[in-house]
Design a binder for these strands. Structure first.
Lengths: 213, 213
DNA sequence: CACTTATCTTTACACTGACAAGATCGCAAT
DNA sequence: ATTGCGATCTTGTCAGTGTAAAGATAAGTG
């Protein structure tokens, strides 16, 4: 994969994406440069331009792939949950663990000033991820799930429940990532998340019950 | 303030901080460069080095000032609240409004990879801000407040309540900033925040009541 | 085979952060 | 008053970056 025989690479785009992914993990996205990615792929520094346009286009692709990965993690976590509460805990834990495992990806995914917000691939990937979260909330409320296609956020009440769940887990992941939760011992973090998720799950389920009566 | 007569500036440090603040608002912190700040202050490109060392030192100072500003906003918001629920709503609203009014400052404040985490001024400012949030939670629970000095997070239960409140409002501010809450109409955002804050306030107060019995 | 197009390289330019060395000034000690 | 010292600011330089333009090479198409 490093020694090229031909002038043309054949699969440079994919190799650049792999290199970019690796750079994010090795150097963070502050150390991410087009030239470094090109270097790792063994091509000239201007080669990425043809595939991604500019740095923003490149980062947008990487962010889209990261959303796909997050989506897969969330999906995997949901499959083995015995109760509504356990499912809520499982997806929360998966969200936070993704942020801890791929901190630079996580930072990049939520930097709309660095990304091309018009990119369809990024929008679709982000939307798929959100749908995962939404479906967990819908089940908490005892309502039918939606597929990615027919996603039409119904009532304001449902949106509010989705947002409150997302905001909490995202805020925790973000604050943890940026080292703002130092008052919590490292061993306490996972315990907190499980406890807090259980409380929120209880709140969502009980209030949904009230509405239906 | 622009026309310097003397070789020495007199108050260059402060003027550079003002310039940096302005650059953050005009160009975002992607457009933030030491040279641009120097340009706006009317000094040579290497002048900032003497006052801040390097770019990280400069940004750390700016982040510390931003935390001070956030702290003042939170404090001001808390002073006019008639009930525990209203106080919780007020501080949440102030937090989110700060993020919307100073999005680039907010981004910078939570980028520990760009900041000098050993800086005492930054640490103190961030800690003061957290203390404001903590005191609101303590009051929700009906417990005595703490000053900045004697801040000793007592029980795990209290920490958990502080963190759950902070995570939610921070997550909302962050997701809003990064344009991830597009399913919510612009007019609905403030309404959501007030509603969600009321729900969380209710949860914190009722569970605190249960524990005390 | 000729021609076109996609892919990659080379070259160039303006910009950046950091460093080093020099210029200027304020100020304290004498 | 003068001398010297240290703080402050400037100038010059360097490697590194993103982006653009133009050239080289290969692959595919008629």
């Amino acid at each position: 994969m490093s020694s090229r025989k031909s002038y043309h690479h054949g699969d440079l785009r994919q190799e650049l994406l792999n290199a970019g992914d690796q750079v994010l993990m090795d150097l963070g996205f502050r150390g991410f440069t087009l030239r470094e990615c090109a270097r790792r792929a063994g091509v000239s520094h201007a080669a990425p331009k043809h595939h991604f346009g500019d740095a923003r286009g490149f980062l947008t692709e990487l962010a889209g792939l990261a959303f796909e990965r997050l989506h897969d993690r969330l999906e995997a976590a949901m499959n083995h949950a015995g109760s509504l509460e356990a499912e809520f805990q499982a997806i929360s834990l998966a969200y936070v663990r993704f942020a801890q495992e791929f901190p630079e990806h996580f930072r990049l995914m939520f930097r709309c000033d660095l990304l091309d917000t018009d990119s369809p691939t990024l929008a679709v990937a982000a939307h798929k991820t959100l749908t995962r979260l939404s479906n967990v909330i819908l089940r908490q409320r005892g309502e039918p799930e939606k597929t990615v296609e027919d996603y039409k956020p119904p009532t304001t009440a449902i949106i509010n429940d989705i947002v409150i769940g997302w905001c909490h887990v995202h805020g925790f992941a973000h604050l943890l990532l940026e080292r703002q939760l130092s008052m919590m011992a490292a061993g306490e973090q996972e315990k907190y998340l499980l406890e807090a998720s259980a409380r929120l799950s209880g709140m969502l389920r009980s209030e949904a019950h009230n509405k239906s009566s």
